[in-house]
Design a binder for these strands. Structure first.
Length: 508
RNA sequence: CGGGCUGUGGCUCAGCUUGGUAGAGCGCCUGGUUCGGGACCAGGAGGCCGUGGGUUCAAAUCCCACCAGCCCGACCA
């Protein structure tokens, strides 16, 4: 019997009925974020920001460990700087916010109007290659000044047409690394190092398995020589680009005048890279792990990993229950999960126990712990794992729970990853013919056009024309060209020789 | 930026065709009964009906413009 048809879920619609709407409802129900009155911009609420802060903290440690240091560069980029790299301009010109005035004045009707035009308009950074390049040009004189390994945590603005909470907003939070190297090989190695770092972060911290590789020319960052990317498959089987790392060659060095005297005493342009991930990762986690009752946060990035819910059916038991909660919280905070104290919160609010429980379910807290009078008598607690069905509860001795909490969190983290990996594997196919390819990406149910095959691995000769044709016909693009060993074959569309299979999918 | 749909208390929406002083459910507040599960009963607060203009004695309702949101395209982290 299909229980799911009758069971009430916290989020409606369900994923299978309307995935985009489900996504929005989850974000609202979990109090991650909400749309603001400013077109295309969002308010990130404490719960959502807490997730981002955890991602930030953990990535930051990884950057530091690989020799990078943080710095901060201006939000405003003089138009003339921005104009230096031709492809870069072409790529970003259509989505730039531009500051042209420096003052407001009241007109005759008392309405405020911009006044005092700037001599040179300022572009609000859509990315910072050019403004950072201007500084690097001053800092770099000799090969002894290299490498420069800097990261910046910042907001950027891209005037997008269709905003979506976390996935595509006009202003967004991200991290952008910008490095300069003495040789091409070093710069290429840096881009690859960061790609691997992003992959590790996605898998181990976000429980998000990814496909990695190089972008085709048409999907490359404007001005880059090579763009590397990690791509995840979310639950509607679409791909989401979760992080990119670019080898920029000498293009931006040339544009910004980043030159140094090399070991032979000759002037040479530096070799640069840039790389970034954004708060889009929060949206990725929602679409990756969420269910019809809300989000499910991987323990490593959950702002609260364990919530303690006092059960106080009788007023006279209240004090004793709360005391036991405090004691448990204290003990749990002394335990370590991935080398950090466990984040514990006691929810003392006096609202109905059921309602309270559901709030935390929707917010995706990995582990809920109930303590009531009966538990006090038996020195036990009732556990509910967010990665298991809502009604499923497990009783455990308090002492045992304290000892096992880190292990349980690890198990949840692992389970989320395994599930996601299994889903991605189950919906990834090697495809050997054009017909098979078109069939794979053609929706079987016209009422739900978003449901299609998933990811396809297929040979492609490198023809841009084929790429365009597929995009026009099916809205399917090459997500990545895998790096490393590959079996040559024949392009399934043209029969031409192909060096390797590439990953195809519909994308966010 | 093009095409379609939609803007009415915090949320979901009814009312609009046939103009006549603003409604429901959920949520919120108060009191009570409950309490190992999103409880129940009673009372209450909350809305220049997206904005501006027009038609009219009278506009949530009709007309025009604008703005915003969603879905579909082009673009993107």
């Amino acid at each position: 019997m299909s229980n799911s048809a009758t069971t009430k879920t916290a989020i409606s619609p369900r994923r299978e009925d309307d995935f985009p709407e489900w996504y929005q409802q989850v974000i609202r129900a979990a109090e991650l974020a909400e749309p603001s009155d400013v077109r295309g911009c969002m308010v990130i609420r404490p719960w959502g920001y807490g997730v981002w802060e955890n991602m930030q903290r953990q990535l930051d440690a990884m950057f530091r460990a690989t020799g990078h240091r943080n710095a901060y560069f201006p939000l405003f980029i003089p138009l003339s700087y921005f104009a230096k790299e031709a492809e870069h301009v072409e790529g970003f010109a259509k989505e730039c916010a531009v500051v042209t005035h420096s003052r407001l004045e009241a007109d005759a009707d008392g309405k405020l109007r911009p006044a005092s035009a700037l001599t040179e308009p300022l572009v609000v950074r859509p990315t910072s290659e050019t403004i950072i390049g201007a500084s690097y040009a001053k800092w770099v004189q000799s090969y002894r000044d290299l490498p420069i390994l800097i990261n910046q945590w910042a907001n950027v603005v891209r005037w997008e047409m269709r905003p979506r909470l976390f996935l595509r907003t006009t202003e967004f939070l991200w991290q952008e690394g910008h490095t300069v190297h003495e040789t091409e090989a070093e710069a290429r190695a840096e881009a690859k190092l960061i790609l691997d770092l992003y992959e590790r972060f996605a898998c181990e911290h976000l429980a998000v398995p990814v496909f990695t590789g190089e972008k085709s020319e048409s999907e490359r960052f404007p001005g880059a020589v090579q763009t590397l990317s990690i791509e995840a498959m979310v639950q509607d089987r679409k791909a989401i680009q979760a992080g990119t790392s670019h080898f920029l060659g000498q293009n931006f060095a040339r544009a910004s005048g980043i030159q140094f005297q090399n070991r032979e005493g000759k002037q040479e342009f530096g070799w640069t890279t840039s790389w970034g991930v954004s708060a889009r990762l929060v949206g990725t986690v929602v679409m990756m792990h969420g269910d019809d009752d809300g989000i499910i946060l991987p323990p490593r990035i959950a702002p609260t990993q364990i919530v303690i819910l006092p059960v106080t059916p009788r007023e006279e038991a209240r004090a004793a229950v709360l005391e036991a909660c405090d004691k448990l919280a204290e003990q749990l905070r002394e335990a370590r999960y991935v080398d950090l104290p466990i984040e514990v919160e006691i929810d003392r609010r006096e609202i109905g126990g059921g309602a309270k429980n559901w709030e935390w379910i929707k917010k995706g807290v990995p582990l809920r712990v109930e303590i009531g009078p009966r538990d006090l008598e038996e020195n036990s607690v009732e556990l509910s794992r967010r990665d298991q069905p809502v009604k499923q509860k497990q009783s455990m001795l308090m002492k045992e729970f304290v000892a096992r909490a880190p292990e349980i969190l690890r198990s949840i983290q692992q389970n989320l990853y395994d599930r996601a990996k299994q889903f991605a594997d189950a919906n990834t196919r090697v495809i050997g013919s054009k017909e098979g390819f078109y069939d794979f990406f053609t929706p079987k149910n016209t009422a739900k056009p978003e449901i299609h095959g998933g990811f396809a691995l297929a040979h492609w000769s490198g023809s841009r024309k084929v790429e365009e044709q597929i995009k026009n016909d099916l809205k399917v693009t090459i997500r990545v060209i895998p790096l490393g060993d590959s079996e040559p074959g024949r392009c399934i569309f043209t029969g031409e020789p192909s060096p390797c299979q590439v990953v195809w999918a519909k994308a966010y």
